[in-house]
């Protein structure tokens, strides 16, 4: 592994240094398939970068971390380059000072890999309209995370719905994939009309209302959200003509599927790490219409 620090530098110098380091290491013989731009604050940097590097094992990428520092300081760009670090790709950590914090795209844009997809990810706070953001506009896929908001994660989903553009997605949605997959599997055997239902989750968990919105959109039945002790999502209960179909999970690992007239069955349903969520996002870079429908439905019904 090689780490290289550049202080008070420019995108051109970073680019040259990257090429130099790659040649020095004997040019890693792996093709990078996309650029992942992570826009975050200093305190999120370590965890986010770790998740991104792990996701890059599945999708060899150039990872560019953009950290906006003090906007009052003199203009300055510091960069940290890492190559050969438990990832087949490259990592560039950029720290922006002064007026430059308003023009991050001018640094990021020349560092993008040519002619391959760009993914932007805000692990914490995200712009109101990600697609209109200077960095977000460079990306085909824009990943936000409602859970990254200290409070009001649920409300941030309303903002997401208002500012939605094709290519937007939220990790609160990706967290639901195993749940949705299990529920869909349960519906592979005919169950009849669902009359109403409830999604139970820890209070303020942003994924819960999204799941409820998706279910009511697809099932045409009212689905409400109820608070529990958690952790995370704890149950989905759907009332049918002949009883209840439910998936419940109390230890964040093993869930129980119950349906009328059939024995209860246990299914592994572990909460996933951020790296797995990001890797899932990068697997498909096309528009997620199902997410769009769910988040917009949620916003229509939100009363907060």
């Amino acid at each position: 592994m090689t780490t290289f620090m550049l202080s008070d530098t420019t995108a051109g110098k970073i680019s040259a240094q990257l090429m130099h380091l790659r040649h020095q290491m004997g040019a890693p013989a792996i093709g990078m398939v996309l650029t992942l731009v992570v826009v975050c604050e200093e305190r999120d940097q370590y965890d986010s970068l770790r998740a991104a590097t792990e996701a890059a094992r599945e999708h060899p990428s150039r990872i560019i971390v953009v950290i906006n520092r003090e906007p009052d300081e003199p203009i300055r760009l510091d960069a940290e380059l890492r190559i050969g670090e438990s990832t087949p790709g490259e990592v560039v950590v950029l720290r922006l000072y002064g007026e430059l914090t308003q023009h991050a795209d001018s640094v990021v844009s020349p560092l993008l890999l040519p002619d391959t997809p760009v993914v932007a990810w805000w692990p914490g706070k995200a712009p109101e309209v990600p697609s209109k953001d200077a960095v977000g506009a460079l990306a085909q896929r824009r990943i936000t995370d409602a859970k990254g908001f200290d409070d009001g994660g649920v409300r941030s989903l309303v903002t997401r719905a208002k500012g939605y553009a094709r290519g937007d997605t939220d990790l609160a949605w990706a967290r639901l994939t195993p749940w949705r997959s299990l529920l869909a599997a349960a519906f592979d055997q005919p169950v009849g009309q669902v009359q109403e239902g409830v999604v139970e989750a820890a209070s303020g968990h942003p994924s819960a209302p999204l799941l409820a919105a998706w279910l009511s959109e697809r099932l045409g039945a009212p689905i409400r959200v109820a608070d529990t002790q958690g952790p995370g999502l704890t149950a989905v209960r759907l009332r049918l003509a002949d009883g209840e179909l439910s998936v419940s999970r109390h230890d964040a690992r093993l869930a129980t599927l119950s349906r009328p007239g059939q024995p209860d069955r246990n299914v592994a349903l572990a909460r996933r790490q951020t790296s797995e969520l990001v890797a899932e996002e990068m697997r498909r870079l096309d528009t997620d219409e199902i997410y769009e429908a769910a988040v917009k439905r949620f916003a229509r019904t939100y009363k907060g």
């Binding site: 592979d188 096309d286 997620d288 199902i290």
Partner: peptide, 19 residues
Amino acid sequence: EVEAANPLRDPRDKRLPRV
């Protein structure tokens, strides 16, 4: 047939794996 009738499945929903 059952899969097609499943209200929770949608060909556009590419996140859901084939289970």
